[in-house]
Protein backbone atom coordinates (compact mmCIF):
# COMPACT_ATOMS: atom_id res chain seq x y z
CA UNK A 1 0.00 0.00 0.00
CA UNK A 2 2.70 2.42 1.02
CA UNK A 3 4.42 2.31 -2.35
CA UNK A 4 1.23 3.50 -3.98
CA UNK A 5 1.26 6.72 -2.02
CA UNK A 6 3.68 8.94 -3.91
CA UNK A 7 5.65 11.90 -2.66
CA UNK A 8 3.24 14.56 -3.90
CA UNK A 9 0.49 12.92 -1.90
CA UNK A 10 2.57 13.07 1.31
CA UNK A 11 3.35 16.71 0.67
CA UNK A 12 -0.29 17.48 0.11
CA UNK A 13 -1.18 15.65 3.30
CA UNK A 14 1.44 17.60 5.23
CA UNK A 15 0.12 20.86 3.82
CA UNK A 16 -3.38 19.92 4.80
CA UNK A 17 -2.24 18.96 8.30
CA UNK A 18 -0.44 22.29 8.64
CA UNK A 19 -3.49 24.14 7.43
CA UNK A 20 -5.77 22.37 9.91
CA UNK A 21 -3.27 22.99 12.73
CA UNK A 22 -3.25 26.69 11.90
CA UNK A 23 -6.99 27.00 11.83
CA UNK A 24 -7.41 25.02 15.04
CA UNK A 25 -4.80 27.03 16.92
CA UNK A 26 -6.25 30.30 15.73
CA UNK A 27 -9.46 29.32 17.46
CA UNK A 28 -8.22 27.75 20.67
CA UNK A 29 -4.96 26.67 22.24
CA UNK A 30 -1.57 27.95 21.05
CA UNK A 31 0.92 25.70 19.32
CA UNK A 32 4.44 26.61 20.41
CA UNK A 33 7.69 25.08 19.22
CA UNK A 34 10.71 25.16 21.54
CA UNK A 35 14.17 24.76 19.97
CA UNK A 36 16.57 23.82 22.77
CA UNK A 37 20.38 23.71 22.45
CA UNK A 38 20.71 20.16 23.73
CA UNK A 39 21.03 18.56 27.15
CA UNK A 40 24.67 19.28 27.90
CA UNK A 41 24.28 20.03 31.62
CA UNK A 42 22.01 19.47 34.56
CA UNK A 43 21.00 23.11 34.37
CA UNK A 44 19.99 22.73 30.72
CA UNK A 45 17.81 19.72 31.53
CA UNK A 46 16.16 21.63 34.37
CA UNK A 47 15.54 24.49 31.93
CA UNK A 48 13.89 22.12 29.43
CA UNK A 49 11.72 20.47 32.08
CA UNK A 50 10.63 23.78 33.58
CA UNK A 51 9.67 25.08 30.14
CA UNK A 52 7.71 21.91 29.32
CA UNK A 53 5.85 22.11 32.64
CA UNK A 54 5.00 25.76 32.05
CA UNK A 55 3.65 25.01 28.55
CA UNK A 56 1.55 22.18 29.93
CA UNK A 57 0.15 24.41 32.66
CA UNK A 58 -0.92 26.92 30.01
CA UNK A 59 -2.55 24.21 27.91
CA UNK A 60 -0.27 24.74 24.91
CA UNK A 61 0.23 22.24 22.16
CA UNK A 62 3.96 22.09 22.91
CA UNK A 63 6.50 20.86 20.38
CA UNK A 64 10.05 20.25 21.54
CA UNK A 65 13.25 19.96 19.49
CA UNK A 66 16.58 18.94 21.05
CA UNK A 67 19.38 20.17 18.74
CA UNK A 68 22.07 18.07 20.44
CA UNK A 69 24.52 20.92 20.43
CA UNK A 70 24.37 21.66 16.71
CA UNK A 71 23.19 24.90 15.12
CA UNK A 72 22.23 23.10 11.89
CA UNK A 73 19.79 20.97 13.91
CA UNK A 74 18.33 24.13 15.42
CA UNK A 75 17.83 25.64 11.96
CA UNK A 76 16.23 22.40 10.72
CA UNK A 77 13.91 22.38 13.72
CA UNK A 78 12.86 25.99 13.09
CA UNK A 79 12.10 25.16 9.45
CA UNK A 80 10.04 22.14 10.43
CA UNK A 81 8.10 24.28 12.93
CA UNK A 82 7.47 26.80 10.15
CA UNK A 83 6.14 24.01 7.93
CA UNK A 84 3.95 22.78 10.76
CA UNK A 85 2.60 26.30 11.06
CA UNK A 86 3.11 26.80 14.80
CA UNK A 87 1.89 30.04 16.40
CA UNK A 88 5.25 30.89 17.87
CA UNK A 89 8.80 29.61 18.21
CA UNK A 90 10.96 29.83 21.33
CA UNK A 91 14.65 29.55 20.47
CA UNK A 92 17.65 29.08 22.76
CA UNK A 93 20.36 29.94 20.23
CA UNK A 94 23.61 27.96 20.46
CA UNK A 95 25.69 30.62 18.71
CA UNK A 96 25.17 34.30 17.96
CA UNK A 97 25.59 34.31 14.18
CA UNK A 98 24.13 32.59 11.14
CA UNK A 99 20.43 33.11 11.96
CA UNK A 100 19.40 35.80 9.47
CA UNK A 101 18.11 33.49 6.75
CA UNK A 102 15.99 31.20 8.89
CA UNK A 103 14.63 34.10 10.97
CA UNK A 104 13.56 35.81 7.76
CA UNK A 105 11.80 32.62 6.70
CA UNK A 106 9.89 32.62 9.99
CA UNK A 107 9.15 36.31 9.56
CA UNK A 108 7.73 35.72 6.07
CA UNK A 109 5.57 32.90 7.42
CA UNK A 110 4.33 35.36 10.05
CA UNK A 111 5.58 33.23 12.97
CA UNK A 112 7.01 35.24 15.90
CA UNK A 113 10.31 34.06 17.43
CA UNK A 114 11.25 34.64 21.06
CA UNK A 115 14.86 34.11 22.17
CA UNK A 116 15.68 32.61 25.56
CA UNK A 117 18.87 32.22 27.59
CA UNK A 118 21.24 33.83 25.08
CA UNK A 119 20.93 36.52 22.47
CA UNK A 120 22.04 36.55 18.84
CA UNK A 121 23.43 39.04 16.32
CA UNK A 122 20.61 39.59 13.86
CA UNK A 123 18.38 42.52 13.07
CA UNK A 124 16.21 42.89 16.23
CA UNK A 125 13.13 43.25 14.05
CA UNK A 126 13.47 39.55 13.21
CA UNK A 127 12.57 38.44 16.74
CA UNK A 128 10.01 39.57 19.29
CA UNK A 129 12.27 39.78 22.31
CA UNK A 130 15.29 38.23 24.01
CA UNK A 131 14.61 36.72 27.43
CA UNK A 132 17.57 35.88 29.61
CA UNK A 133 19.52 36.36 32.75
CA UNK A 134 21.99 39.12 32.87
CA UNK A 135 25.65 38.70 33.88
CA UNK A 136 25.83 42.30 35.12
CA UNK A 137 22.84 41.74 37.36
CA UNK A 138 24.38 38.54 38.73
CA UNK A 139 27.48 40.45 39.78
CA UNK A 140 25.29 43.16 41.29
CA UNK A 141 23.22 40.65 43.28
CA UNK A 142 26.34 39.10 44.82
CA UNK A 143 27.65 42.60 45.55
CA UNK A 144 24.39 43.47 47.29
CA UNK A 145 24.44 40.25 49.31
CA UNK A 146 28.00 40.98 50.43
CA UNK A 147 27.17 44.57 51.37
CA UNK A 148 24.33 43.36 53.60
CA UNK A 149 26.32 40.49 55.07
CA UNK A 150 29.34 42.64 56.00
CA UNK A 151 27.36 45.81 56.76
CA UNK A 152 29.24 47.62 54.04
CA UNK A 153 32.76 47.05 55.32
CA UNK A 154 34.83 44.44 53.56
CA UNK A 155 38.20 43.93 51.85
CA UNK A 156 37.42 41.66 48.95
CA UNK A 157 39.59 39.50 46.72
CA UNK A 158 38.16 38.70 43.33
CA UNK A 159 38.67 35.52 41.31
CA UNK A 160 37.90 36.45 37.72
CA UNK A 161 36.82 34.16 34.95
CA UNK A 162 38.88 33.72 31.80
CA UNK A 163 40.40 37.03 30.69
CA UNK A 164 38.11 38.72 28.16
CA UNK A 165 35.13 36.38 28.66
CA UNK A 166 31.81 38.21 28.41
CA UNK A 167 30.52 36.63 31.64
CA UNK A 168 33.66 37.64 33.54
CA UNK A 169 33.67 41.25 32.32
CA UNK A 170 29.98 41.79 33.09
CA UNK A 171 29.96 40.01 36.46
CA UNK A 172 32.97 42.09 37.48
CA UNK A 173 31.29 45.31 36.37
CA UNK A 174 27.97 44.51 38.06
CA UNK A 175 29.70 43.73 41.34
CA UNK A 176 31.88 46.85 41.16
CA UNK A 177 28.83 49.04 40.47
CA UNK A 178 27.22 47.98 43.73
CA UNK A 179 30.18 48.05 46.07
CA UNK A 180 31.39 51.46 44.91
CA UNK A 181 28.43 52.86 46.84
CA UNK A 182 29.98 51.59 50.06
CA UNK A 183 33.13 53.49 51.08
CA UNK A 184 34.10 50.61 53.38
CA UNK A 185 34.12 48.02 50.62
CA UNK A 186 36.94 47.58 48.14
CA UNK A 187 38.53 44.95 45.95
CA UNK A 188 42.08 44.62 47.23
CA UNK A 189 43.23 42.00 44.72
CA UNK A 190 41.84 40.59 41.51
CA UNK A 191 43.25 37.80 39.37
CA UNK A 192 41.97 35.25 36.90
CA UNK A 193 41.37 31.71 38.08
CA UNK A 194 40.48 30.74 34.50
CA UNK A 195 37.07 29.38 35.60
CA UNK A 196 38.68 26.26 37.11
CA UNK A 197 38.85 25.04 40.70
CA UNK A 198 42.58 24.35 40.41
CA UNK A 199 43.07 27.87 39.07
CA UNK A 200 40.95 29.33 41.89
CA UNK A 201 42.92 27.38 44.46
CA UNK A 202 46.29 28.45 43.07
CA UNK A 203 45.37 32.15 42.92
CA UNK A 204 43.81 32.05 46.40
CA UNK A 205 46.98 30.43 47.78
CA UNK A 206 49.08 33.27 46.48
CA UNK A 207 46.61 35.90 47.79
CA UNK A 208 46.71 34.28 51.24
CA UNK A 209 50.49 34.66 51.24
CA UNK A 210 50.87 38.08 49.64
CA UNK A 211 47.96 39.72 51.47
CA UNK A 212 47.58 37.52 54.53
CA UNK A 213 44.41 35.60 55.37
CA UNK A 214 43.61 37.90 58.31
CA UNK A 215 43.41 40.89 55.94
CA UNK A 216 40.86 39.30 53.60
CA UNK A 217 37.20 39.62 54.48
CA UNK A 218 35.60 37.90 51.49
CA UNK A 219 36.18 36.07 48.22
CA UNK A 220 34.06 36.95 45.19
CA UNK A 221 34.44 34.19 42.60
CA UNK A 222 32.98 34.59 39.10
CA UNK A 223 31.99 30.92 39.14
CA UNK A 224 31.43 28.10 41.62
CA UNK A 225 34.41 26.02 40.54
CA UNK A 226 36.85 28.73 41.52
CA UNK A 227 35.01 29.18 44.83
CA UNK A 228 35.47 25.48 45.61
CA UNK A 229 39.20 25.80 44.90
CA UNK A 230 39.45 28.95 47.03
CA UNK A 231 37.69 27.24 49.95
CA UNK A 232 40.27 24.47 49.83
CA UNK A 233 43.19 26.93 49.76
CA UNK A 234 41.73 28.75 52.79
CA UNK A 235 41.36 25.47 54.66
CA UNK A 236 44.94 24.48 53.89
CA UNK A 237 46.10 27.85 55.23
CA UNK A 238 44.57 26.88 58.59
CA UNK A 239 41.53 29.20 58.33
CA UNK A 240 37.83 28.39 58.22
CA UNK A 241 36.27 29.23 54.85
CA UNK A 242 32.81 30.89 55.10
CA UNK A 243 33.61 32.06 58.67
CA UNK A 244 37.07 33.63 58.69
CA UNK A 245 36.70 34.51 55.01
CA UNK A 246 33.30 34.72 53.29
CA UNK A 247 32.95 33.07 49.87
CA UNK A 248 30.34 34.07 47.28
CA UNK A 249 30.02 32.73 43.75
CA UNK A 250 27.68 32.31 40.77
CA UNK A 251 26.33 29.33 38.78
CA UNK A 252 24.77 26.92 41.30
CA UNK A 253 26.56 23.82 39.99
CA UNK A 254 25.80 20.61 41.87
CA UNK A 255 29.20 20.43 43.56
CA UNK A 256 28.86 23.86 45.18
CA UNK A 257 25.89 22.62 47.22
CA UNK A 258 28.04 19.88 48.71
CA UNK A 259 30.78 22.40 49.56
CA UNK A 260 28.16 24.76 50.98
CA UNK A 261 26.51 22.01 53.02
CA UNK A 262 29.95 21.29 54.49
CA UNK A 263 29.96 24.92 55.64
CA UNK A 264 32.73 26.08 53.31
CA UNK A 265 31.04 28.71 51.14
CA UNK A 266 28.26 31.20 51.90
CA UNK A 267 26.15 31.84 48.85
CA UNK A 268 25.68 30.98 45.19
CA UNK A 269 23.40 32.37 42.53
CA UNK A 270 21.49 30.28 40.03
CA UNK A 271 20.78 31.44 36.53
CA UNK A 272 17.06 31.04 36.35
CA UNK A 273 15.92 27.91 34.50
CA UNK A 274 12.41 29.39 34.58
CA UNK A 275 12.77 31.62 31.54
CA UNK A 276 10.00 29.76 29.72
CA UNK A 277 7.20 31.58 31.53
CA UNK A 278 8.58 35.01 30.60
CA UNK A 279 9.07 33.86 27.00
CA UNK A 280 5.48 32.58 26.78
CA UNK A 281 4.15 35.80 28.35
CA UNK A 282 6.02 37.80 25.71
CA UNK A 283 4.70 35.56 22.94
CA UNK A 284 1.10 35.86 24.10
CA UNK A 285 1.41 39.62 24.46
CA UNK A 286 2.87 39.88 20.96
CA UNK A 287 0.10 37.74 19.47
CA UNK A 288 -2.47 39.91 21.24
CA UNK A 289 -0.93 42.88 19.44
CA UNK A 290 0.79 44.44 22.46
CA UNK A 291 4.26 45.99 22.40
CA UNK A 292 6.97 43.84 23.96
CA UNK A 293 10.36 45.23 25.08
CA UNK A 294 13.32 43.84 23.11
CA UNK A 295 15.08 42.62 26.24
CA UNK A 296 13.47 40.89 29.23
CA UNK A 297 15.67 40.04 32.20
CA UNK A 298 14.81 37.08 34.41
CA UNK A 299 16.58 37.37 37.74
CA UNK A 300 18.24 34.31 39.23
CA UNK A 301 17.88 33.19 42.82
CA UNK A 302 20.38 33.12 45.66
CA UNK A 303 21.01 29.85 47.50
CA UNK A 304 22.31 29.65 51.07
CA UNK A 305 23.92 26.92 53.22
CA UNK A 306 20.61 26.24 55.05
CA UNK A 307 19.10 24.52 52.02
CA UNK A 308 22.37 23.28 50.50
CA UNK A 309 22.21 19.67 51.69
CA UNK A 310 18.65 19.37 50.41
CA UNK A 311 19.54 20.93 47.04
CA UNK A 312 22.56 18.65 46.69
CA UNK A 313 20.44 15.55 47.28
CA UNK A 314 17.87 16.80 44.77
CA UNK A 315 20.34 17.61 42.02
CA UNK A 316 22.80 14.75 42.38
Amino acid sequence: MKSVVGKPVIKAALGLAAATLMSVSAMAELTVGFVQTGSESGWRTAFTNATKAEAEARGYDFKFADAQGKQENQIKAIRSFIVQGVDGIVLAPLVTTGWDKVLKEADRAGIPVVLVDRGLDSDPSLYVTSVGSDFTMEGAMIGAWMAVETEGTCDIVELQGAVGADAAIKRQAGFANVIENFPGMQIIASQTGSWSSTGGKEVMESFLKSIGGENICAVWAHNDNMAIGAAQAIKEAGLQPSEDILIASVDAITDIFKTMADGETNVTLELSPYQGAAAFDALEAHLAGEDVPKRITVPGGLFYPETAAEEYARRK
Partner: peptide, 15 residues
Amino acid sequence: LTTIIFSSGVPVEYN
Protein backbone atom coordinates in the same frame (compact mmCIF):
# COMPACT_ATOMS: atom_id res chain seq x y z
CA LEU B 1 56.77 33.63 37.24
CA THR B 2 53.13 32.53 37.47
CA THR B 3 53.11 32.71 41.26
CA ILE B 4 54.86 36.10 41.21
CA ILE B 5 52.25 37.45 38.81
CA PHE B 6 49.42 36.17 41.01
CA SER B 7 50.81 37.72 44.16
CA SER B 8 52.05 40.98 42.63
CA GLY B 9 48.69 42.50 41.71
CA VAL B 10 49.44 42.86 38.01
CA PRO B 11 46.15 43.51 36.14
CA VAL B 12 45.06 40.23 34.54
CA GLU B 13 45.37 41.57 31.01
CA TYR B 14 49.15 41.83 31.51
CA ASN B 15 49.66 38.31 32.97
